[in-house]
Simulated scan of single mutants.
Amino acid sequence: MEIRSLTKALRLLDALGEQPGTLGVSELARQLELDKSSVSRMLRTMEQSGYVEQDPKTQRYSLGIRMGVLGHKALRRLDLREAARPFLEALAEETGECSHIAILADNRAFYIDQASPRRGVVVDAPIGTLAPVHCTALGKTLVAFQPEALREEILAAGVLEPFTRRTIVDPAGLVRHLDSVREQGVAIDDEEFSIGVRCIAAPVFRYDGAVCGAIGVSGPSPRVTDERLRAWEPRVKGAAAELSARLGWEEDGFAVSPEGASVRVRT
């Protein structure tokens, strides 16, 4: 009996969480196919503990502050590296190339994990690698989706070193390029950091809409043709979106722009 009551209470919380507004007792009872008296009792009990709130004017219910506190604690404890692991492995197997995930650290792309396919020679970027942000796919992704003020600060702090003849070293040109990355939702390193290596990456967002990482795939340029990059793009974007959802990001198809507004990420 207690297990059934708990299951009903959890269903109530789920129903309230899926509703952007409020719900009345009759609506919840009808939606969950429960009797009104049981729904009313459970709601009153959960209200006393702060898990739901009742509007004193409309008598309708919504999730309470206690649920927000618990959700925030759960999200803070979720480890990005651990959460990303299955997505890295899947990308490596699907593409046949090495996949990576990086975060922004000291104004550079800090590689926190990677996965290699079972066969073949791959482009290796050891965990702990610090790479420049202006000429790597992961780095450009991490910078492109930052708020404008922070993006300018990051770019001003670094030197646009020409690692290859393809490296973008013109500040204005780099800003335009990053605008394109943000618009397209994906960044490509076309032998800009190392001759013979091409990469593609997409942003990972956390629960509050801020970019917290970048996930991508790298490979030798003879294998990584334009055709393969086009084929990988939806896979990399998809992995980034699924990982973002795992981290609590709920804005389906949208990211936070430098001005704070939502912009569509093309898929």
Rank of each mutant, 00 (worst) to 15 (best):
E2W: 11
I3E: 11
S5T: 08
T7Q: 10
K8A: 07
A9G: 12
L10C: 13
D14E: 14
L16G: 15
E18P: 09
E18S: 15
E18L: 15
P20T: 00
G21N: 14
G21C: 11
G24N: 11
V25C: 12
L28K: 14
L32F: 15
S37P: 11
E47M: 10
E47Q: 15
Q48D: 11
E53H: 10
Q54L: 04
T58V: 13
Y61P: 15
S62E: 15
G68V: 06
G68H: 14
G71F: 10
K73W: 14
A74F: 09
R77Y: 00
L78G: 04
D79G: 02
L80A: 01
A83Q: 10
A84M: 05
A84P: 04
L88V: 08
L88Q: 12
E89V: 05
L91A: 02
L91P: 00
A92I: 01
T95D: 02
E97Q: 07
E97T: 00
C98L: 10
A102K: 00
I103F: 00
I103A: 00
I103L: 01
L104V: 01
L104D: 01
N107D: 02
R108K: 02
D113T: 06
D113Y: 05
A115F: 09
A115V: 04
R118M: 13
R119E: 06
V121F: 13
V121A: 12
V122S: 14
V123P: 06
A125L: 12
T129F: 00
L130F: 04
A137S: 12
A137I: 02
L138P: 11
G139E: 03
L142I: 06
A144E: 07
F145H: 05
P147E: 08
E148Q: 01
E148A: 04
A149Y: 05
E152Q: 14
L155S: 04
A156F: 07
A157P: 04
V159N: 09
L160E: 03
E161A: 04
E161P: 01
F163P: 03
D170F: 07
V175H: 15
V175A: 13
S180N: 09
S180Y: 06
F193G: 02
S194C: 07
S194E: 11
G196C: 05
V197M: 01
R198C: 06
C199N: 03
I200R: 07
A201R: 10
A202K: 14
P203W: 14
V204M: 13
F205I: 04
D208K: 06
G213T: 00
G216Y: 05
V217H: 06
S221A: 15
P222N: 01
R223H: 15
T225V: 03
E227D: 11
E227W: 06
R228S: 07
L229F: 10
R230Q: 11
A231N: 08
E233L: 12
E233R: 15
R235S: 05
V236T: 08
V236K: 08
G238K: 06
A239L: 02
S244W: 01
A245G: 13
R246I: 01
R246K: 13
L247I: 07
G248K: 03
G248N: 10
W249C: 03
E250H: 07
F254L: 12
F254R: 09
A255K: 05
P258I: 02
P258A: 06
P258E: 08
G260W: 03
A261P: 00
S262L: 05
V263Q: 04
V265A: 00
T267I: 05
